[in-house]
């Protein structure tokens, strides 16, 4: 029991450390870039200096509902900063040619600018039957201009194998030079831990013809033989998708996806008579509304 507790603590620290390290990297100080950047110093992010201006200094203690000439009753004027919005974003909904599978990678969010409820789900199905899926449910909170911290849980389902549940902690956002990052660390039962990281980039050939390189890696802290996964780097996949945006919200694409399993995960695959790496053509749809 206490040993288990200790293992978990170690894992939590590891998870936190990796998340913070990645976040810190993403928002790295700009000072080591070229001289032009150096001029700007702290144009973005950073900590407020002690003598930073008080944004309420001019209010004389009045508020939007208190003080002279305030309308009686509760505040009536509420602008979009207090509204909740939502979106459903289909990053990938595609058919993979060699595995004859349909892959989905969807996100949905609901909330304000800074606090959102987020669901991310991805998986694949063959002949209409779900082979495997993983679904994250997060409370997502902005922690700087470009990144949200995300805290929640994940459920993995396997058609053949054992389903897994995880606690999840990660961050998602836009790194300098326009890289979309999504990194999450996971803690499961029996001392399981995992880390998954995704990066995307958009290369605009024209305003509508866009190439999207994408890379994803998954790591596991402990062997999971029931699901054919080994500890360490389990798999890495890289894709190139060329889409045409009929509208910003509706873009069919074609592309290639290469993936490879590593270490013990590769051995499990080989033992099952499958290849440890594969590359295949994909065709699909990117959309949001």
């Amino acid at each position: 029991m206490s040993m288990n507790y200790f293992t978990r603590l170690t894992h939590i620290s590891l998870v936190l450390a990796s998340v913070l390290a990645s976040g810190a990297y993403a928002e790295m100080d700009h000072s080591n870039h070229d001289s032009g950047a150096h001029e700007m110093g702290q144009a973005q992010g950073g900590k407020a200096p002690d003598n930073a201006r008080d944004p309420h200094a001019y209010s004389d203690g009045f508020t939007l509902t208190e003080g002279p000439y305030a309308l009686p009753g509760p505040r009536q004027l509420r602008l979009a900063d207090e509204h909740r919005f939502w979106a459903i974003i289909g990053d990938r909904l595609e058919y993979q040619e060699k595995s004859e599978s349909t892959v989905f990678d969807l996100q949905a969010w609901y909330g304000t600018t800074y606090n959102r409820f987020v669901v991310k789900t991805e998986g694949d199905s063959v002949d209409g039957a779900l082979e495997e899926s993983s679904t994250d449910v997060f409370w997502s909170r902005a922690f700087n201009a470009y990144f949200d911290a995300q805290l929640g849980a994940r459920v993995d389902t396997y058609d053949e194998g054992e389903n897994r549940q995880w606690l999840a902690l990660g961050f998602q956002g836009l790194a300098p030079y326009w890289f979309e990052l999504d990194v999450t660390a996971y803690l499961g039962d029996d001392g399981r831990s995992a880390l998954s990281a995704e990066a995307e980039y958009e290369l605009l050939f024209t305003q509508r013809l866009i190439l999207q390189p994408r890379i994803e890696i998954n790591l596991l802290g402990k062997d999971d033989p029931e699901n054919g996964l080994g500890s360490g780097l389990t798999n890495l996949s890289a894709g190139l998708r060329l889409r045409y945006e009929f509208s910003r919200q509706f873009a069919p694409y074609i592309g290639v996806e290469w993936s490879r399993a590593f270490d013990d995960t590769a051995d499990y695959l080989l033992a099952a008579g499958e290849d440890k790496s594969s590359s295949q053509l994909v065709a699909g749809l990117k959309f949001w509304f």
Partner: peptide, 17 residues
């Protein structure tokens, strides 16, 4: 230039010094 302390959070993507 005096930036407000609330200019260092998620609501602001850049400041001019």
């Amino acid at each position: 230039v005096n930036h407000a302390r609330t200019e260092y959070g998620p609501s602001v993507d850049a400041r001019v010094d």
